[in-house]
Simulated assay, not measured.
Amino acid sequence: MVHFTKLQGNGNDFILIDEYNGEVIHADKKSAFAAKYCDRNFGIGADGVLYLGSSDRADIRMRIFNSDGTEAEMCGNGIRCLVKYALDKGYIKKNATVETLAGVLSISSRIEDRTWVTVNMGKPVFMRERIPARGEGEFLEVDMHDYSVSAVNTGVPHAVIFVDSLVPQLMHTAPGIRYDPVFPKGINVNFVRVDSIDEITISTYERGVEAETLSCGTGSVACVAVASRLGRTGRRVKVNTKGGELIITLTDEAAFMEGPAERVFDGII
Rank of each mutant, 00 (worst) to 15 (best):
P132A: 13
A133I: 14
A133D: 09
A133R: 09
G135C: 11
G135A: 09
F139L: 11
V142E: 14
V142P: 03
V142Q: 10
D143P: 07
D143A: 15
H145M: 14
H145V: 03
D146I: 04
V149H: 02
V149A: 05
S150F: 01
S150R: 08
N153F: 01
T154Q: 15
T154I: 12
G155Q: 05
V156L: 11
V156P: 02
P157E: 11
V160L: 11
I161L: 14
I161E: 01
I161H: 02
F162P: 10
V163T: 09
D164Q: 09
S165L: 12
V167D: 13
P168Y: 05
P168M: 09
P168D: 15
Q169T: 07
L170G: 07
L170D: 06
M171G: 08
M171N: 15
T173Q: 09
T173P: 00
P175E: 07
I177Y: 00
I177Q: 05
Y179A: 08
Y179H: 04
P181E: 14
P184S: 08
K185G: 02
K185E: 15
G186P: 04
N188Q: 12
V189F: 02
V189N: 12
F191N: 10
V192P: 03
R193E: 15
R193G: 10
D195K: 13
S196L: 12
S196K: 03
I197M: 13
E199L: 06
I200K: 07
